[in-house]
Structure formats: structure tokens, C-alpha cells
């Protein structure tokens, strides 16, 4: 502010505003589109989740150099952990008793859940899209088999996890989801050494059937979780 502006300010008193609130209310409230809402949720996804996701991406890129042909099992062991992160983020409202507050906001709990599931679903999808070619190139299976071995454990972990968080509230449910996802990861990490019979070429058709079944189950459970938001606010 220069000395003239200062001089004018000192010389003249500004009249008190009249009908200030009514005037401000005339301005249209800024609206938020659904896509903007989804993007706005990015910083509200837990930092630990983002950190672990980044770590997973780094591991996927480094794995071929370190593990060579065993990279397929490593990647297929990572994807259930990605599903665990996605499911646990989706159930945060329940876990921290925020469901009632979130249910009463403009973007309802249902939209919030959808936004979180979309966000982490997209990230998981990117991880899988990146992993499959790497797994195929460095591993010992063809594209089709690698895709099945990478995606199926993800869907298994996701479908079971979504069912559990819907049925069992609180820390108990979260623990069960963690335990089951870690167990699936363990089976896949150890796949070549101890569970080789699961990866024989004769078994591919069973993997395909399991994949289709789990894809349907994951979609059904996701829908049920979204429709179940009313139940989350029931505090008993």
C-alpha cells in the first residue's frame, strides 16, 4: 500500500456493511463434480497405503533383476497385498467409527466408498497391467497363464476381504482380512518351491474357472458393500 492509499484509508472511515450475509448467500456455492470428488479423496487415503503401494511398484520393477524366472510368483504374491490395502481403505469409515458423520454429508457414505474403491481399484489395475508383461517376459509362463496367476490371487483376496469387512465389524474383521491376504500371498510367494502342483499346465483350466468365479464374486461383494452403507451407521 503506498502513502496515498494509506492517506485515503486514514482520512475516510468505511461504513459498516449492510446485509452482508444476504449478499454473500447470493453467490452460487461452488459445486464439486463426482470426478473432482474422487480426486479430492486422494490425500485422504492413508499415507501408509500410498507408501506401501509405491513400494509395491518399485518391487515389481526390481524383482526381475533379483529373482529372474521366479518373478511370476513374487508378483502373484504381491497382488493379494494390494487387494488388502484396497479393502482396508474401503472399510476405514467403519473401522474408525466415521461412518455416521460421513453418511450425513452431501457426498454420502456410499459415494465416498465408491470413490475410495475406484481410486484403489485403478491403482491395483495399473499394478496388474505393469506386472503381467514383466512376469511374462522374465518368467517361465505364457501371457495367459501369467495373467491368471497374477489376477486370480488378487480377486481371491479382494472377494473374501470385501465379504469379511461387510460381515464382521471393527478390528476383528480387519485382522481376518489381513490374515487371509497374507496367507494367500504366502502360498503364491512359495509357489514354485512348495506348491508347484498348483501351476501345472493341466491346471490352467481350473485357474480360469476360479478367475471367472472370483471376478463375479468380487463385483457382487463390492456392490453389496456399497449397498450396505446404512448398516455401517448402526452403532449397536
Amino acid at each position: 500500500m503506498n502513502r496515498f492509499e494509506r492517506g485515503i484509508k486514514e482520512s475516510f472511515s468505511v461504513p459498516n456493511p449492510i446485509k452482508k450475509e444476504e449478499f454473500i448467500k447470493k453467490f452460487p456455492k461452488p459445486e464439486m463434480s463426482l470426478s473432482k470428488f474422487v480426486i479430492s479423496q486422494i490425500p485422504y487415503v492413508s499415507k501408509v497405503t500410498w507408501a506401501l503401494t509405491i513400494l509395491m511398484f518399485i518391487s515389481v520393477f526390481l524383482a526381475p533383476r533379483i529373482l529372474g524366472v521366479k518373478v511370476t510368483w513374487f508378483i502373484s504374491g504381491l497382488t493379494p497385498l494390494m487387494a488388502l490395502l484396497a479393502v482396508s481403505e474401503s472399510s476405514r469409515s467403519q473401522k474408525y467409527n466415521m461412518a455416521q458423520l460421513e453418511a450425513s454429508t452431501r457426498f454420502s457414505l456410499r459415494s465416498l466408498l465408491l470413490a475410495r474403491m475406484l481410486l484403489l481399484g485403478i491403482v491395483s489395475f495399473v499394478l496388474i497391467i505393469v506386472s503381467v508383461p514383466l512376469g511374462t517376459f522374465y518368467g517361465s509362463f505364457r501371457v495367459f497363464e501369467t495373467s491368471l496367476y497374477v489376477i486370480t490371487p488378487f480377486l481371491l483376496s479382494a472377494s473374501i476381504g470385501l465379504y469379511i469387512v461387510r460381515s464382521i465389524k471393527g478390528n476383528n474383521g480387519f485382522y481376518m482380512v489381513s490374515a487371509i491376504s497374507l496367507f494367500i500371498s504366502l502360498i503364491m510367494f512359495m509357489g514354485d518351491k512348495y506348491f508347484g502342483f498348483l501351476f501345472l499346465s493341466v491346471g490352467v483350466k481350473y485357474w480360469l474357472m476360479l478367475f471367472m468365479l472370483l471376478l463375479v464374486l468380487t463385483i457382487v461383494e463390492s456392490k453389496k458393500l456399497l449397498n450396505n452403507t446404512e448398516d455401517m451407521t448402526w452403532s449397536l
Partner: peptide, 10 residues
């Protein structure tokens, strides 16, 4: 503990 089991096996 699960990480140790996995690392022990791998």
C-alpha cells in the same frame, strides 16, 4: 511374523 516365514522360505 508372516514376513519372516516368507523370507525364511524364499
Amino acid at each position: 511374523s508372516m514376513l519372516l516365514v516368507i523370507l525364511g522360505g524364499m
